[in-house]
Each structure stands twice: as C-alpha cells, then as structure tokens.
Design a protein around this nucleic acid. Structure first.
Lengths: 402, 402
DNA sequence: ATGATACGTTGTGCACACCAACAAATCAGG
DNA sequence: CCTGATTTGTTGGTGTGCACAACGTATCAT
C-alpha cells in the first residue's frame, strides 16, 4: 500500500458517505472518518473540482459554533440501471445518492432475447440520457433474474427468460460505450436494502425475496455484499426443507421454493399474477375477513412452517443480525400473527435467534434499479479520480466488462 | 486512514506473510506486496529490530541474480493455545509460523469447571514458559467446545463441559497477565485449516467437523474468518435435514447432527470413543472386509445421504470454492466410494457444485491448538509495533479481554 | 455586546513510500 | 577464471499527503 492508495481510499470513503447519506456536513465527515478538518477540506475540494460533489451553505442550524457546509452529491454523472424481465425492460438513470432521475418501463410482447435486451436497453438509456444533457451516463448495472457470473457478467442460467450461458455485460458495454456490470437480481435487491432500505447498518444480513420465478437471496457479511466464489451465493430457495417433498425445477427434491411458491399464495386469495403490493393487501384483507382455519390461513401457516425450517439452517449457519424479507415472503410476514412470527426463528439455536431481527424490505419497486445502480457506482466510488478527465478511459479499473 | 495506518498495514502484511509461509525471501515480499525493494528492506529492518523476525543468508540458490536473504519468524515471542475438553486440558506454546514449541495434555478425572480450567491452564502455561526462558508468552487463545461470544470471550453454552454463561477469557487474562481471546473450537479448526491446512488459498470456504459432541463448523468469506453477528456462525450441525426426524439435543427436530452422529459410525465398527485416526482406519478396514450392503456400508451410506442434504443448502447459500471435512465426517468421506462422493453435491445447483471442491482436513490433532494460536496472534500481527516496548501495555488494542 | 463554541483556513512539519544510481552476489559461457 | 547478464540489496534524495497549531469566522447563550 503506497501513499497514493491512502489518497484514493480517503477520497473514496468521503464519496461513499456522501452517496449513502445523500449529503453530509464536513463536520460529519471529520467525525465519521477520523481525519483532520484540514484533510477533509482538501478531500472535499478535490471531489468538488472533479465534478462529484457540490458544497452548499444551507446547513440546518444545529447548535452553537460556526455552521459546517453541506457536501451534496452532484448529478453531473449518472449511472444507468437495467432490469430485463419477462414482459418488460425496466430502465432508469440514477444519481449519486441513489435518486432515480428518470425511468422508463419498456413493455415487451414476448420474453426478450439477449440481443433484443441489449438493443432496447441501449436505445432507452440513450433516449433518457438525451433528456438530461447536463449529465453524463458513465456506467451501467444490470439486474438479471438468474445466475450471473460476477467476473464477466455472463448469464449462466435465467430460466424465466430462457437464457443460458449468454454473455450480457460485454455486448451491453459495447453497445453503450460505457462499463457495464451485471448481477443476480436478488443480490442487487439485497444491496439496495442494505444501503438505503431495511438493511441499513446491519453488518451481517440475509435477504430473501419471493418472486414469481422462485426464491432468491443475498448476503451481507462484515458490511460488504457477499457473492461467493463465482457470484452464485444466496440461493436459499434451493435449500432442502423436506426430503420427501416435491421435485423442484432445479432437479432436486424438496427445495424451499417448491414448497413456498408465490403462485399458491396468490391463488389462495384468488389472484393470478399480482404485483407485490396487490398481493400483500389482498392477503391482509383475506386474513381479516376469513375465519381462523380457513384456506388462506392454512396456506399462510403452511408456507411459514417451511420458511421457518429454511431460515433455521441459514440463521444457524450465518448468525445474522438482520433478516430482510421481500416479495411474497414480505406479504407472508405481514400476514403472520404474533405467534407465527415468533416461531419463524423458534427452532434456531437461541443465541442465533436472539441476535436476528426480521424486517420487511423497504424499497418496493425501486429496489432492483437502485441495486443495479449500486453495482454500477462501485468502481467509480472506489476510485473517484480515475473518472476525472475521460470518463471512458477508466473502464479497466472496474470489475466489469467494457 | 492516516499515514501511520499505512505503515501499520504494511508491517502487518509483511509479518503475516512471514507467519503464514513460515519464512519468505525479501524478493518474495516485494512481489507479493507490490512494494518497492527499499520499502520492504525498511519494513523488515523494523520488524527485526522489534524482535519479530530474523534475517538469514541461507537462501536456497534459485536462478541468477543476487540471492535474497530469507526472513524467518523468530521465537522471541510465543502465544499460548488452550483447549479444555471433557477429560483433558490441552495446552501448547506456539511460535510465529504456527510451530508447536511445547505441548502438555493435562489429564482430568472429571469435567473441569471454568475455575479449574483457568487455574490448570494458567499453571501449565507458566510451567511450559519456564522451560523456554529465551521466549516470552505474549497472548493466549482458547478453543472452547461450545458457543462463545467473540466480543468478550464469554462462553454462552458448552453442553459437553456443562458450562453456561460463564466468563472465560476475562479470568484467564487476569490469571495469566496477558490478553486472552476465546472462540468456538470448530471456528478455530477452520482458521487453522485455512491458514496452514486443507483450506490454504481458498477465499470462500466451509469447514465442517464431526466430533463426539456434535457437528460444528466455520466459514471463511473473502479470505477472512466469518464469525457472524456475535460469534455463533457455522452451526450447520443444527440445520434441519428431516422435518420428520428425531429430536435433537438443541430442542429442534431433524438436525443434521442428530442424524449423522459420530457414535453411530463408531458403533458400526464396534468402537466406543475412538479418536479420529482410530475411527478412520477402523472404518476403512471394515468397508474393505465387509460385503456391499452390510451394516457398515449401510451406516456410511445413510450418513452420507443426510450430509448431502445439509451440504446442498450450505453450498447453494454460500457458493464456496472449498469444503473441508474433519472428524468423523472426514472418515465418512474417506470411506465413501466414487459415486457416493459425487452425490454429496449432486443435488446442489450445478453452478455451485462445480465451484466447490471437497477436501479432508489436514492438521490432525494439532488443529485446535494451531487455531487457538491464530486467534492469539491476530491482534499482534495486526499491529506489530505496539508490542515493541512493553508487551503487556497493548492489551486494549486486541479484540480481547485483558 | 461579549464570551463560548464549533468550524474553516493557512502554513509548516513529518512520516513514509518511491525512485535512481550504485554495489553486491549469483549464473552462464567461453 | 574472467566477463557480461541478471537479480537484488543499499543509499540518499524527492514528493505526497496527513496532522497540527494558530488564526479567522460564524453561530448561540446570556
């Protein structure tokens, strides 16, 4: 580690705080980073020169002493967030501080091929960027409903889209002329919740999302997203919960996601492909309306029992301090009564159950886009000055294909 | 991060390499750390001045060019490693480079209380230290067969010893006058295997050990040991593998360790409390002697089936690149035939199964002591100069109770 | 108004890693 | 055995970046 690395680290730490807290005072920065006032002043000045932040004097007056100027993220640079799905490609431009500046949902008549995804996404990003001439789109992140190799953004398998061993990040980068990184959608949901949602502050966390194509998840270990050896960690949906259970689409027996399907929950309340909010409110309504022991109660109780078994294993293995539930698992949690909630971790070792709090995901429909944007910001925040002169020349500094 | 932090980090990185590789040339250090020759020379000189390393010119001649002196760990400082068990307290002095310099197994007539453990361990360490007057014992680590809170080394529960909510690190530190850290024995086995055994080089690894009191484990994530929120991670032994299975001692149903007990394997080969080596060789002998389908084959196959179910969940959740098996799980693996070995990860997602290799633990009976020593070295290696003048004054720099 | 408090600003010093030039120790080839 | 090539250690000089102290500035409390 040389002296330059110190500078890079400190600049990166400042920028990361500005990003995560959407603006902080310089005084906050000195306290959070333990650096000298003069050093912080210098670092902020460098970031301001390079177009990353603005300083403003509209500090909320708080206490005696000279007020500290606020350091705010600047929108001169944006990243693109892309989420291809079965019937839509969701595209957004996201600022530092994770504000969605522009968003367009491009409807599809049929599931997209990779080529179509690349073409539509690149075009849509260009159109959205044209509406924001004062900003430059400097990188992109893609949330893919499937397994993505993180070293090069190759989609190993996305059953819902019918993709298999398809390069994705590379052609997108070629089409857009900026670095592109891709990752599993649940991983990125986890990142988003960790940075800006229900996972804030948790150093060890398990995120579980119940979507139409199954149950995915993500992990945070020591405050950092955990990908595993190649990027496929977090697949608790394919943990065994019943060795005598049904055959799962993955070929194994008794997977969690085969026993806790979103479709069954939706069917119990008479819906077919509800979105998260619709499913949740229908479920809560049904639970209130129905007598205890009715079919909705039954299905909720059944799914909670299986979920508890899977959570027991994960909680005993990881000793997380937080568990965040999204999608129909969030709906399940909301529909559960006091006893059912307690029993979710009831069979875990007491010490592990005591450390863990269960929360419901907070970011709703913006989750995947914010997560994809986080992925895109990663390399830039890690080394803010490399983006200084030519934004395109920095491609190889990223864990990304350009 | 200030300038001094750079120095600390670099010194620490050099010392860590010397420790892990049990000596390296200065040329190796420049390559491994990417620092300048002159910087490495300076760092090594500082470490040598402070009694951490020796330089010797006995380099193995390899190729042209001026030979690089070897930097070797020096035994001026030692750490104590302590492992209380049911019928013995195992104590050792361990050098930088993880060589066991002295060891004594103190036999017990009955399971030790915490007070007895503290007294016997402290006395034994003092006696061993007296045999090595040229060295100073500067810290200690304890491997506990139970759940240990890592912030203060309090034993939450050690069923085998009958301990519950017992402070351990604090009284030991008081008795010995040096910093003491304590952790779960399987965690420390994992650390030992990671640093010096079958886990070397793995950045994501799952360690699983089958002992007489159950199945414990440890995790390595991003090259660093993973403890969880409070220190209780790795308990895959209490993952559910059969919701209709037997009641486990932990109060839950169908835990892995209830279905894969060491005692059943030992009983199958007619032994009662065999050590690891005895069990393994007896099992291998029996497998060869017995016809396929016999009771030993049956028990091995049965246990492997349950183990596969638990491993599936863990592998899909973590996407590890290595799985290390110890204790009777290692014996199981050794006894398994080709097909059985393949089927251990056969139900995991193919991408996850492809990334993971299964290995057998390599360090045998020294594992826990080496792991406990690793724990003790942690704080010292992280900041070598703080130990320079007064070895005792550095206590509060450690994640440890003094 | 006045002191106390908190913060930004400026100039200086220092720690530390890098660099370039040189010296030393080996190997290969004659 | 000598010579050149190669690799590495050594030395003195240089530059970068953070800390620190002293001072200026803006707010609050009385």
């Amino acid at each position: 580690m040389d002296a330059g690395a110190v500078r890079r680290r400190n600049l990166s730490a400042v920028l990361e705080l500005v990003h995560l807290r959407r603006g902080v005072t310089r005084a906050d920065l000195t306290r959070a980073l333990g650096l000298n006032r003069s050093t912080i002043g210098d670092l902020v000045a460098v970031l301001a020169e390079n177009g990353w932040v603005d300083e403003r004097d509209d500090a909320p007056r708080s206490g005696v002493g000279r007020p500290s100027p606020r350091v705010l993220p600047r929108d001169a640079r944006l990243v693109a967030a892309i989420n291809p799905e079965l019937d839509v490609i969701d595209v957004a431009l996201v600022s530092l501080g994770a504000e969605i500046v522009a968003r367009r949902r491009v409807p599809l008549s049929e599931p997209p091929t990779v080529a179509a995804t690349v073409e539509r996404a690149a075009r849509t990003v260009a159109e959205l960027a044209a509406d924001h001439p004062e900003s430059t789109v400097v990188a992109a992140g893609v949330a893919v409903p499937g397994l993505v190799r993180h070293e090069d953004g190759l989609v190993r398998l996305a059953p819902r889209l019918g993709w298999r061993e398809e390069p994705l990040a590379a052609p997108l980068a070629a089409a857009m002329g900026i670095p592109v990184a891709a990752a599993n959608d649940a991983h990125l949901g986890c990142r988003a919740e960790q940075s800006f949602g229900a996972g804030q502050g948790a150093r060890t966390m398990l995120y579980l999302n119940g979507g139409p194509s199954g149950i995915g998840g993500g992990l945070v270990v020591d405050g950092r997203p955990m990908d595993g050896a190649a990027g496929y960690a977090g697949e608790l949906g394919h943990a065994s919960v019943d060795p005598n259970g049904p055959l799962c689409a993955c070929g194994a027996i008794g997977c969690l996601e085969a026993l806790v399907p979103r479709a069954a929950l939706a069917a119990a309340v008479g819906l077919e492909h509800p979105d998260d909010d619709t499913l949740e409110s229908a479920l809560l309504t049904a639970i209130v309306a129905e007598d205890t022991g009715g079919p909705v109660h039954e299905e909720v109780a059944r799914q909670l029992r299986w979920l508890a078994i899977a959570l027991r294993g994960a909680v005993n293995l990881l000793n997380p301090e937080r568990i965040v539930l999204g999608g129909h698992l969030a709906a399940l949690w909301r529909a559960a009564d006091r006893d059912q909630r307690a029993s979710l971790l009831g069979q875990a070792l007491p010490v592990n159950a005591a450390d863990a709090t269960i929360e419901v995901a907070a970011l709703g429909g913006q989750r995947l886009l914010i997560g994809a944007a986080e992925l895109a910001w990663d390399g830039l925040i890690a080394d803010p000055l490399s983006a200084g002169e030519s934004d395109a020349a920095r491609a190889d500094a990223l864990p990304v294909v350009s």
